[in-house]
């Protein structure tokens, strides 16, 4: 029951990381947000980043997205330096309400990514329908985001990201604003979507259980400045299950370890 990354390593030998941070430091407004961060994310890996608020986890994600450029050090994607955001890296923002176009319907919002990718307009409707079905929004194509619940809007944002056909999916506390039931449902859906597409995922969250439940690997950041404080491999069987995975002794052991780490950083 090896993790996705280990599986790939077994097949290909030591794979080149899809995303590689090499001694990355980011200074914003005279403040060092991230210091000397080195990190490799293997293709197909599901990496979760946790940490106390203000530890730079969202910043690390924005560096991986190419939305920020490091002050020193390098961020590479597939061995190439990241100079700007790229279409094969999709970002799911936490504030889905701000990341969707309120003047476009659900179908229109998904279409935005297809238009950007240069898909001919004749092919779009079928693809849009397929994507909306994939994220569990069939029959909502004509609705505006404001007519949808928070969970539905976040599904819609995920559909738009999938329309980019991303190699890497960057998720910034995507379920932070949702209620517990909706969150669990979406966690499982993201896992099956990712398994189906084979995308690499970096998932930022402040929910430690969520990180362990989803990830192949969990990294805990230390604050001021942000740096890696703990790194845990999650050797839990997949597919994960909301009940049995969370009751697994390994899950509980990792949970304990991570909680102790976070507690220590907060003192």
């Amino acid at each position: 029951m090896a993790s996705a990354a280990k599986r790939l390593e077994a097949v290909y030998g030591t794979a080149t990381p899809q995303i590689a941070f090499d001694g990355v430091t980011l200074v914003l407004g005279g403040k060092t947000i991230i210091e000397n961060l080195s990190l490799g994310v293997q293709p197909g890996e599901f990496l979760c980043i946790v940490g106390a608020s203000g530890c730079g986890k969202t910043t690390a994600l924005r560096l991986a997205a190419g939305l920020y450029q490091p002050t020193s050090g390098k961020v590479n994607f597939d061995g190439q330096p990241m100079r700007e955001p790229r279409r094969e890296i999709a970002i799911v923002f936490q504030d889905y309400g701000k990341a969707l176009l309120p003047w476009r319907t659900a179908a229109g919002n998904v279409s935005l990514a297809l238009e950007a990718g240069g898909m001919p307009s004749a092919e779009r409707p079928a693809r849009i329908e397929e994507l909306l079905r994939t994220v569990g929004l069939p029959g909502h194509a004509g609705k505006y985001p404001s007519e949808m619940s928070g969970g539905m809007q976040q599904r819609l944002q995920i559909a738009r990201c999938l329309a980019q056909e991303p190699k890497t999916l960057l998720m910034d506390e995507p379920f932070g604003a949702l209620d517990a039931m909706t969150r669990q449902g979406l966690q499982d859906e993201v896992l099956s979507l990712v398994a189906a597409s084979g995308a690499t995922v970096i998932f930022v969250t402040h929910d430690l259980d969520e990180a362990i439940y989803l990830g192949d690997r969990v990294i805990g950041l230390l604050p001021h400045p942000g740096r890696i404080g703990i790194e845990l491999s999650v050797n839990l069987p997949r597919p994960r299950d909301q009940l049995s995975t969370r009751e697994h002794p390994e899950f509980l052991r990792l949970r304990r370890q991570l909680f102790d780490f976070i507690k220590a950083t907060e003192q």
């Binding site: 955001p85 790229r86 970002i91 504030d95 176009l101 003047w103 990718g117």
Partner: peptide
């Protein structure tokens, strides 16, 4: 215009013209 939307546009690598006509103008309409 919501700055987040410009980030969405950047991650989609939209052209300058597309950003004006698909994001900024409708948002300002």
């Amino acid at each position: 215009v919501e700055p987040r939307l410009y980030e969405v546009a950047r991650s989609l690598q939209m052209s300058r013209l597309a950003v004006i006509f698909k994001i900024a103008l409708p948002s300002a309409s």
